[in-house]
């Protein structure tokens, strides 16, 4: 089942990130293919996305349910297709970067990451934000994980198409949230 996790760091403290992320209205338009969303309750919302399947696009309605809500730390959710046979889940996690923490070991991009980056570029979704916290700058680390799994007889084909799309989608969302927060923080 296709899954992708995107991690980024930003020169913004965790409370500010939380303030932004906790209200989905703030970041909903950053979701790839976003059309609209409707809050049903504190936990439930209905999302309408335009899904690009290469040769055509389809409007997909998703029922999103928040399953864990830990303030300033973690949000987990599930999603269920209303008009399509698809399901999945995801996680937002954020944590503060400690000023006196030892430097993070450099993580070399694996083949999958390189492929995803190439694919993102291919579809014109190359991340534009390059800023990372300077050494000693108290910032935060944020990760966004998304898993989607198609159902029904066409699942093997749809999942094959979903797999490379999740990387750019998660990266796009994470980068845009970070860019918006850093922009607000600098002003």
């Amino acid at each position: 089942m296709p899954e992708h996790t995107y991690e980024t760091t930003m020169a913004v403290p965790v409370p500010k990130i939380w303030d932004f992320v906790q209200d989905m209205d703030n970041w909903a338009p950053f979701v790839t293919g976003y059309q609209e969303h409707e809050k049903i309750s504190d936990e439930n919302s209905i999302w309408t996305l335009k899904g690009d399947m290469g040769v055509l696009s389809r409007t997909v309605k998703l029922d999103v349910k928040i399953t864990e809500w830990t303030e300033r730390e973690r949000v987990e959710f599930t999603l269920t297709g209303i008009n399509e046979q698809v399901s999945g889940d995801g996680t937002f996690v954020m944590s503060a970067i400690q000023e006196d923490a030892p430097p993070e070991p450099e993580v070399k991009a694996g083949a999958w990451t390189r492929f995803m980056t190439w694919l993102a570029r291919l579809f014109g979704q190359s991340p534009t934000r390059q800023a990372l916290p300077e050494p000693g700058d108290a910032g935060a680390r944020m990760s966004f994980r998304l898993r989607m799994d198609a159902g029904g007889p066409m699942a093997p084909m749809i999942n094959a198409m979903l797999a490379p799309a999740l990387g750019p989608a998660t990266e796009n969302l994470g980068e845009k949230i970070a860019a918006r927060l850093e922009e607000a923080s600098a002003s």
Partner: peptide
């Protein structure tokens, strides 16, 4: 054979 079709699409 949707599995094969998926491979071919990719």
């Amino acid at each position: 054979n949707f599995g094969l079709m998926g491979q071919r699409i990719m």
